[in-house]
Design a protein around this nucleic acid. Sequence first.
DNA 1: ATACTCGCAACCGTTATTGTTACTTGATGC
DNA 2: GCATCAAGTAACAATAACGGTTGCGAGTAT
Lengths: 132, 132
Amino acid sequence: MKRNSRLSLALHTLGHMAAEPDRMRTSADIAEHAGTNPVVVRRVLGRLRKAGLLNAEKGHSGGWRLARSPQDITLADVYLALDESLIATVAEEDTPNCAVEHALHRKVSSVMADIERSLIERLAATTIAEMK
Amino acid sequence: MKRNSRLSLALHTLGHMAAEPDRMRTSADIAEHAGTNPVVVRRVLGRLRKAGLLNAEKGHSGGWRLARSPQDITLADVYLALDESLIATVAEEDTPNCAVEHALHRKVSSVMADIERSLIERLAATTIAEMK
DNA sequence: ATACTCGCAACCGTTATTGTTACTTGATGC
DNA sequence: GCATCAAGTAACAATAACGGTTGCGAGTAT
């Protein structure tokens, strides 16, 4: 079983959508292409829908489509929509009784926050239109 | 249950050791201070021993001690010794049949690799002597 | 009305991690 | 030599996260 497959699935799907923005795709179609399950697809794309990146329509000829122009969706948008940090956070101690621990946590958290900002900056430099 | 507590435990312990480098500490002492189990301590510190950061001695008056000067051990040394990436890697597809997927994987992997290098660089700028 | 699709809740199987027990190995003190 | 102490290690349980799966409800087009 793979970890962090949510971002992979999301980007993969949006990459194809960027190539044909007008085509409506069902969860079943996407799932088959990605080798997974329609429910998993809906779970992941549902987050992108709530973030305003995708529209979903029910019923006949329903399915998923981009809510914005492909040039207007960056990899950072997708990353942030999934709310799934690729940067691990260091657990805060419940009882910060120890000065060493507190200093370490501050230091490492500061570094990790910088790294996360840097990652988002890098991801924001690429749109899904470049990935089709 | 906390995740990524290995690095926290390792840095916490080494921070205290940096303050009193000559004092020998047993797994039981460390575990009690850190609120965990001696076996867990040995598991984590064992990696640091294999990486040459710590020495362990058995028997009476045995225990753990720094193998190097605290000024000569950086946070990056500890991070690398644990071989536990805080930066998630994006899963490679078994069958790279899809061009979109391949392009995305290359792009994201490249960004993540840069971020990992940047993290290590940042961690290497601080020694455990500054954390005591 | 029927068929199709998303939305969502509930559950199972797998995996990763920590916690725990028990035992072995090696060093020290008597 | 022998008891004691501590690391080393294997084995297992407990917990949590995640993907996969089933089932059902809600909404829409034909």
